[in-house]
Protein backbone atom coordinates (compact mmCIF):
# COMPACT_ATOMS: atom_id res chain seq x y z
CA UNK A 1 0.00 0.00 0.00
CA UNK A 2 1.33 3.33 -1.04
CA UNK A 3 1.63 6.28 1.33
CA UNK A 4 -0.51 8.54 -0.80
CA UNK A 5 -2.74 7.12 -3.48
CA UNK A 6 -4.91 8.85 -6.05
CA UNK A 7 -7.30 6.53 -7.84
CA UNK A 8 -9.12 7.60 -11.02
CA UNK A 9 -9.56 11.17 -9.82
CA UNK A 10 -11.83 13.39 -11.86
CA UNK A 11 -12.63 16.97 -10.97
CA UNK A 12 -15.14 19.09 -12.81
CA UNK A 13 -16.11 22.70 -12.24
CA UNK A 14 -19.40 24.32 -13.17
CA UNK A 15 -22.76 22.75 -13.80
CA UNK A 16 -24.38 20.92 -16.73
CA UNK A 17 -23.73 23.07 -19.82
CA UNK A 18 -20.87 25.12 -18.47
CA UNK A 19 -19.16 22.08 -17.01
CA UNK A 20 -15.46 21.70 -17.62
CA UNK A 21 -13.46 18.74 -16.55
CA UNK A 22 -10.22 20.07 -15.19
CA UNK A 23 -8.66 16.80 -14.15
CA UNK A 24 -9.57 13.42 -15.55
CA UNK A 25 -8.34 10.00 -14.61
CA UNK A 26 -5.49 10.94 -12.37
CA UNK A 27 -3.66 7.97 -10.89
CA UNK A 28 -0.71 8.56 -8.63
CA UNK A 29 1.14 6.60 -5.99
CA UNK A 30 3.71 8.14 -3.67
CA UNK A 31 5.75 6.02 -1.28
CA UNK A 32 6.80 7.13 2.16
CA UNK A 33 9.93 9.24 2.20
CA UNK A 34 9.78 9.91 -1.49
CA UNK A 35 10.22 13.29 -3.14
CA UNK A 36 7.95 13.54 -6.15
CA UNK A 37 7.66 16.46 -8.50
CA UNK A 38 4.76 17.14 -10.82
CA UNK A 39 5.70 19.36 -13.72
CA UNK A 40 3.16 21.09 -15.90
CA UNK A 41 2.29 24.18 -17.87
CA UNK A 42 0.49 27.02 -16.16
CA UNK A 43 -3.24 26.51 -16.19
CA UNK A 44 -2.99 22.77 -16.45
CA UNK A 45 -4.80 22.12 -13.19
CA UNK A 46 -1.83 21.85 -10.85
CA UNK A 47 -3.36 23.86 -8.06
CA UNK A 48 -6.59 21.88 -8.31
CA UNK A 49 -4.55 18.71 -7.89
CA UNK A 50 -2.80 20.11 -4.83
CA UNK A 51 -6.06 21.18 -3.25
CA UNK A 52 -7.48 17.71 -3.82
CA UNK A 53 -4.55 16.13 -2.02
CA UNK A 54 -4.49 18.51 0.92
CA UNK A 55 -8.26 18.18 1.29
CA UNK A 56 -9.40 21.72 0.50
CA UNK A 57 -11.64 20.40 -2.28
CA UNK A 58 -13.24 17.05 -2.97
CA UNK A 59 -12.91 15.09 -6.21
CA UNK A 60 -15.99 14.71 -8.41
CA UNK A 61 -15.20 11.03 -8.70
CA UNK A 62 -12.39 8.76 -7.57
CA UNK A 63 -10.64 8.52 -4.21
CA UNK A 64 -7.65 10.11 -2.52
CA UNK A 65 -6.11 7.76 0.04
CA UNK A 66 -3.57 8.97 2.58
CA UNK A 67 -1.99 6.13 4.52
CA UNK A 68 -4.88 3.93 3.37
CA UNK A 69 -7.54 6.30 4.70
CA UNK A 70 -9.70 8.43 2.39
CA UNK A 71 -8.88 12.12 2.68
CA UNK A 72 -11.71 14.06 4.24
CA UNK A 73 -10.87 17.69 4.78
CA UNK A 74 -7.52 19.15 5.68
CA UNK A 75 -5.17 17.60 8.19
CA UNK A 76 -2.13 18.65 10.17
CA UNK A 77 -0.35 15.60 8.80
CA UNK A 78 -0.17 17.22 5.41
CA UNK A 79 1.53 20.61 5.49
CA UNK A 80 0.95 22.95 2.59
CA UNK A 81 3.14 25.68 1.19
CA UNK A 82 0.94 27.82 -1.00
CA UNK A 83 1.89 29.41 -4.27
CA UNK A 84 1.21 32.94 -3.05
CA UNK A 85 2.61 32.57 0.48
CA UNK A 86 -0.81 33.20 2.06
CA UNK A 87 0.60 34.81 5.17
CA UNK A 88 -1.82 36.77 7.30
CA UNK A 89 -0.72 40.37 6.81
CA UNK A 90 -1.88 41.58 10.21
CA UNK A 91 0.35 39.15 12.07
CA UNK A 92 4.11 39.33 12.42
CA UNK A 93 6.38 36.58 11.17
CA UNK A 94 6.51 35.02 14.61
CA UNK A 95 2.76 35.28 15.09
CA UNK A 96 2.07 33.68 11.72
CA UNK A 97 4.20 30.69 12.63
CA UNK A 98 2.91 30.64 16.20
CA UNK A 99 -0.68 30.40 15.05
CA UNK A 100 0.10 27.26 13.07
CA UNK A 101 2.18 25.71 15.84
CA UNK A 102 -0.51 26.37 18.41
CA UNK A 103 -3.06 24.55 16.31
CA UNK A 104 -0.74 21.66 15.58
CA UNK A 105 0.32 21.08 19.20
CA UNK A 106 -2.61 22.12 21.39
CA UNK A 107 -1.21 20.34 24.42
CA UNK A 108 2.11 22.14 24.62
CA UNK A 109 2.43 25.18 26.83
CA UNK A 110 3.20 28.64 25.59
CA UNK A 111 6.90 28.49 26.31
CA UNK A 112 7.39 25.27 24.36
CA UNK A 113 5.39 26.67 21.48
CA UNK A 114 7.51 29.81 21.38
CA UNK A 115 10.61 27.67 21.35
CA UNK A 116 9.35 25.76 18.33
CA UNK A 117 8.53 29.03 16.58
CA UNK A 118 11.98 30.41 17.34
CA UNK A 119 13.64 27.24 16.03
CA UNK A 120 11.85 27.22 12.72
CA UNK A 121 12.22 30.93 12.16
CA UNK A 122 15.92 30.49 12.86
CA UNK A 123 16.01 27.59 10.41
CA UNK A 124 14.84 29.80 7.57
CA UNK A 125 17.23 32.47 8.93
CA UNK A 126 14.58 35.05 9.61
CA UNK A 127 15.26 35.57 13.32
CA UNK A 128 16.09 39.26 12.84
CA UNK A 129 12.74 39.76 11.10
CA UNK A 130 10.62 37.79 13.56
CA UNK A 131 8.68 40.87 14.66
CA UNK A 132 8.10 42.24 11.19
CA UNK A 133 4.89 42.10 9.24
CA UNK A 134 4.77 40.32 5.88
CA UNK A 135 4.47 43.57 3.93
CA UNK A 136 7.82 44.67 5.29
CA UNK A 137 9.51 41.58 3.85
CA UNK A 138 10.76 40.72 0.37
CA UNK A 139 9.11 37.96 -1.67
CA UNK A 140 11.82 35.47 -0.81
CA UNK A 141 11.56 36.23 2.89
CA UNK A 142 7.80 35.83 2.80
CA UNK A 143 8.10 32.48 1.12
CA UNK A 144 10.59 31.42 3.79
CA UNK A 145 8.03 32.32 6.44
CA UNK A 146 5.50 30.17 4.59
CA UNK A 147 8.04 27.32 4.56
CA UNK A 148 8.69 27.77 8.28
CA UNK A 149 4.99 27.84 9.01
CA UNK A 150 4.32 24.64 7.08
CA UNK A 151 7.29 22.80 8.56
CA UNK A 152 6.82 23.95 12.14
CA UNK A 153 3.64 21.93 12.29
CA UNK A 154 5.86 18.86 11.76
CA UNK A 155 3.71 17.40 9.00
CA UNK A 156 4.37 13.89 7.76
CA UNK A 157 4.01 15.07 4.23
CA UNK A 158 4.87 18.42 2.69
CA UNK A 159 2.85 19.58 -0.27
CA UNK A 160 4.34 22.48 -2.19
CA UNK A 161 2.35 24.31 -4.81
CA UNK A 162 4.86 26.17 -6.99
CA UNK A 163 6.42 27.52 -3.85
CA UNK A 164 9.29 29.26 -5.60
CA UNK A 165 7.49 30.41 -8.71
CA UNK A 166 7.53 34.10 -7.92
CA UNK A 167 11.15 34.32 -6.81
CA UNK A 168 14.29 35.40 -8.59
CA UNK A 169 16.80 32.75 -9.63
CA UNK A 170 19.24 33.35 -6.79
CA UNK A 171 16.72 33.25 -3.97
CA UNK A 172 15.11 30.33 -5.67
CA UNK A 173 18.32 28.30 -5.63
CA UNK A 174 18.93 29.06 -1.96
CA UNK A 175 15.43 28.08 -0.96
CA UNK A 176 15.60 24.88 -3.00
CA UNK A 177 18.65 23.90 -0.99
CA UNK A 178 16.98 24.84 2.26
CA UNK A 179 13.91 22.76 1.50
CA UNK A 180 16.06 19.80 0.45
CA UNK A 181 18.08 20.16 3.61
CA UNK A 182 15.03 20.03 5.81
CA UNK A 183 13.52 17.20 3.82
CA UNK A 184 16.78 15.24 4.04
CA UNK A 185 17.02 15.69 7.81
CA UNK A 186 13.99 13.67 8.74
CA UNK A 187 13.01 12.17 5.41
CA UNK A 188 9.48 13.31 5.16
CA UNK A 189 7.41 12.61 2.10
CA UNK A 190 7.26 15.54 -0.25
CA UNK A 191 5.22 16.52 -3.25
CA UNK A 192 6.42 19.44 -5.31
CA UNK A 193 4.32 21.07 -7.98
CA UNK A 194 6.38 23.17 -10.34
CA UNK A 195 6.63 24.50 -13.87
CA UNK A 196 10.41 24.39 -13.85
CA UNK A 197 11.87 21.13 -15.15
CA UNK A 198 15.35 21.85 -13.79
CA UNK A 199 13.95 22.49 -10.34
CA UNK A 200 12.10 19.19 -10.50
CA UNK A 201 15.19 17.28 -11.56
CA UNK A 202 17.35 18.94 -8.93
CA UNK A 203 14.98 18.20 -6.09
CA UNK A 204 12.88 15.13 -6.82
CA UNK A 205 13.25 11.37 -7.01
CA UNK A 206 10.58 11.10 -9.63
CA UNK A 207 9.09 13.59 -12.07
CA UNK A 208 5.60 13.20 -13.43
CA UNK A 209 4.43 15.56 -16.12
CA UNK A 210 0.87 16.82 -15.98
CA UNK A 211 -0.69 16.95 -19.42
CA UNK A 212 -2.42 20.33 -19.72
CA UNK A 213 -6.10 20.73 -18.92
CA UNK A 214 -8.98 20.70 -19.51
CA UNK A 215 -9.03 16.95 -18.98
CA UNK A 216 -5.54 17.02 -17.56
CA UNK A 217 -3.99 13.66 -16.88
CA UNK A 218 -0.62 12.57 -15.60
CA UNK A 219 1.95 11.50 -18.17
CA UNK A 220 4.56 8.75 -17.81
CA UNK A 221 6.92 9.18 -14.90
CA UNK A 222 10.63 9.87 -15.19
CA UNK A 223 12.97 8.51 -12.56
CA UNK A 224 15.85 10.72 -11.58
CA UNK A 225 18.87 8.57 -10.81
CA UNK A 226 21.17 11.13 -9.35
CA UNK A 227 23.12 10.78 -6.13
CA UNK A 228 22.12 13.01 -3.25
CA UNK A 229 23.23 15.54 -2.22
CA UNK A 230 23.11 16.91 -5.72
CA UNK A 231 25.36 19.66 -6.92
CA UNK A 232 23.95 22.07 -9.42
CA UNK A 233 27.16 22.80 -11.30
CA UNK A 234 28.24 19.18 -11.47
CA UNK A 235 24.79 18.15 -12.51
CA UNK A 236 25.02 20.18 -15.69
CA UNK A 237 27.84 17.95 -16.94
CA UNK A 238 26.21 14.72 -15.87
CA UNK A 239 25.11 12.76 -18.98
CA UNK A 240 22.33 11.14 -17.01
CA UNK A 241 20.95 14.54 -16.10
CA UNK A 242 21.18 15.80 -19.64
CA UNK A 243 19.41 12.75 -20.96
CA UNK A 244 16.51 12.91 -18.47
CA UNK A 245 16.18 16.62 -18.91
CA UNK A 246 15.97 16.32 -22.68
CA UNK A 247 13.46 13.51 -22.42
CA UNK A 248 11.16 15.47 -20.16
CA UNK A 249 11.41 18.65 -22.16
CA UNK A 250 10.80 16.76 -25.40
CA UNK A 251 7.78 15.14 -23.85
CA UNK A 252 6.40 18.46 -22.71
CA UNK A 253 7.15 20.03 -26.10
CA UNK A 254 5.30 17.21 -27.82
CA UNK A 255 2.28 17.83 -25.65
CA UNK A 256 2.49 21.48 -26.53
CA UNK A 257 2.64 20.69 -30.26
CA UNK A 258 -0.24 18.25 -29.92
CA UNK A 259 -2.25 20.96 -28.32
CA UNK A 260 -1.48 23.32 -31.15
CA UNK A 261 -2.42 20.81 -33.87
CA UNK A 262 -5.62 20.10 -32.02
CA UNK A 263 -6.73 23.61 -32.72
CA UNK A 264 -8.42 23.01 -36.07
CA UNK A 265 -9.55 26.49 -36.85
CA UNK A 266 -7.43 28.15 -39.46
CA UNK A 267 -6.95 31.87 -39.38
CA UNK A 268 -6.82 33.39 -42.83
CA UNK A 269 -4.80 36.56 -42.95
CA UNK A 270 -6.14 39.33 -45.15
CA UNK A 271 -4.37 39.66 -48.47
CA UNK A 272 -2.75 43.05 -48.16
CA UNK A 273 0.13 44.63 -50.02
CA UNK A 274 1.82 47.77 -48.73
CA UNK A 275 1.04 50.80 -50.80
CA UNK A 276 3.82 51.95 -53.05
CA UNK A 277 4.26 55.59 -52.14
CA UNK A 278 7.56 56.00 -54.00
CA UNK A 279 6.12 55.32 -57.44
CA UNK A 280 3.13 57.44 -56.67
CA UNK A 281 5.25 60.47 -56.02
CA UNK A 282 7.48 59.82 -59.04
CA UNK A 283 4.37 59.82 -61.17
CA UNK A 284 3.47 63.21 -59.80
CA UNK A 285 6.70 64.74 -60.99
Amino acid sequence: MAYLELNNICKTYGQSDGETEVLSNINLKIEEGEFVAIVGFTGSGKTTLVNLINGLIKPTSGTVLFKGEPVDGTSHERGVIFQNYSLLPWLTVGQNVFMAVKEAFPKKNKKELHEIVANYVEMVSLTPAINKRPNELSGGMRQRVAVARALAMKPEMIIMDEPLGALDALTRGNLQDEILNIWGKDKRTALLITNDVDEGIYMADRIIPLRPGPNATLGPEFKIDLERPRDKTEMNDNPNFKKTRNEIIEYLMDIGNERKSEAKEEYILPDLVPKDFVNQFKFGR
Binding site: N54, L56, G73, T74, S75, H76, G79, V80, F82, N84, S86, L88, M99, A100, E103, A104, M153
Partner: peptide, 20 residues
Protein backbone atom coordinates in the same frame (compact mmCIF):
# COMPACT_ATOMS: atom_id res chain seq x y z
CA UNK B 1 -6.17 32.52 0.52
CA UNK B 2 -6.76 33.44 4.15
CA UNK B 3 -9.73 31.09 4.35
CA UNK B 4 -7.56 28.34 2.88
CA UNK B 5 -4.92 29.04 5.52
CA UNK B 6 -7.58 28.77 8.22
CA UNK B 7 -8.70 25.47 6.75
CA UNK B 8 -5.22 24.04 6.43
CA UNK B 9 -4.38 25.04 9.99
CA UNK B 10 -7.73 23.55 11.02
CA UNK B 11 -8.78 26.59 13.04
CA UNK B 12 -12.03 26.27 14.99
CA UNK B 13 -15.01 28.44 14.09
CA UNK B 14 -14.30 31.05 16.77
CA UNK B 15 -10.61 31.10 16.02
CA UNK B 16 -11.39 31.47 12.34
CA UNK B 17 -13.71 34.43 12.96
CA UNK B 18 -11.49 36.23 15.45
CA UNK B 19 -8.08 35.47 14.00
CA UNK B 20 -8.75 35.52 10.28
Amino acid sequence: DYINVAKVLKLGTFQKIFKV
